[in-house]
Design a protein around this nucleic acid. Structure first.
Lengths: 127, 127
DNA sequence: TCTTGACCTTCCAGTTGCTGGAAAGTCTAT
DNA sequence: ATAGACTTTCCAGCAACTGGAAGGTCAAGA
């Protein structure tokens, strides 16, 4: 299967698939003409990657998860640890964004937003 | 005032302050020896930047906000518009992260995390 | 006066995860 | 034969810094 079909199948752009090969995540075979040739196993890995990236795992996390995915003797604890760390990080980001939103929301509400120059948002930033 | 004092005053790393000069945000005068020399006005702008960046505004947003900050005749509506757009973007990110967290949290809970290879997290990623 | 150490300068490279584009080769259909 | 839709590689760029190297400057102490 060539790269554009692999892209359609996995939901990843062809450019991204080539990039994943560059960084050693999925290396398909090659045809006589030099074209990449994806087999079922490659496709599984690409789908795995697109899903894991969609869940916000870093590419380096994905590399580890992929190797665990390939390892029939992995311990589920290893996977859980990565996922848990990621979960905590996501929760930290949510909290940070919420506090940001609260501050910003207050500022936006306090600004009447008309032609006059007086602006509580700018005043706050400058304080 | 030299760069390390400006850094201490504004809460920005010296490296970042030099970077802001590179991209044309804050350009201090220079002493005879070539050292940067920050005056009160520069410091105000640096503080403004660190606060606006802390609120998650992009550097390009900051550039506009800074020019509005400098403009005594700005309309508060202009500022409010930028802040509102940013607020919406933050809310979008929060919602995205929350949905991510819910999915990931379910996965983590369903994985017993022991020595055995069976792992619902990997299974889900591979599905 | 010399030296040490803490500053300062510029410039270049690397980070993350792609994405766009150029130049050139290949395949398929008309 | 030729058009156009693929494919390849390589190089550059995005955001917003950050680290490090190589070298200049300055203030304090022996």
């Amino acid at each position: 299967m060539n790269i554009s079909d692999a892209a359609a199948d996995s939901g990843l752009p062809a450019k991204t698939i080539r990039y994943y090969e560059d960084i050693g995540l999925v290396s398909p075979g090659r045809l006589a003409n030099g074209y990449r040739d994806y087999d079922e196993h490659d496709l599984h890995k690409l789908r795995f990657l697109q899903r894991a990236r969609g869940l916000g795992f870093s590419v380096e996390d994905c590399r580890v998860l992929l190797s665990l995915y390939e390892d029939r003797n992995r311990a589920s604890a290893d996977v859980k640890k990565i996922a848990k760390t990621h979960l905590i990080e996501i929760e930290r980001k949510i909290a940070e964004l919420q506090s940001l939103r609260d501050t910003l929301s207050d500022l936006v509400q306090s600004c009447h937003g008309d032609d006059r120059p007086n602006c509580p948002i700018i005043n706050d930033l400058a304080r």
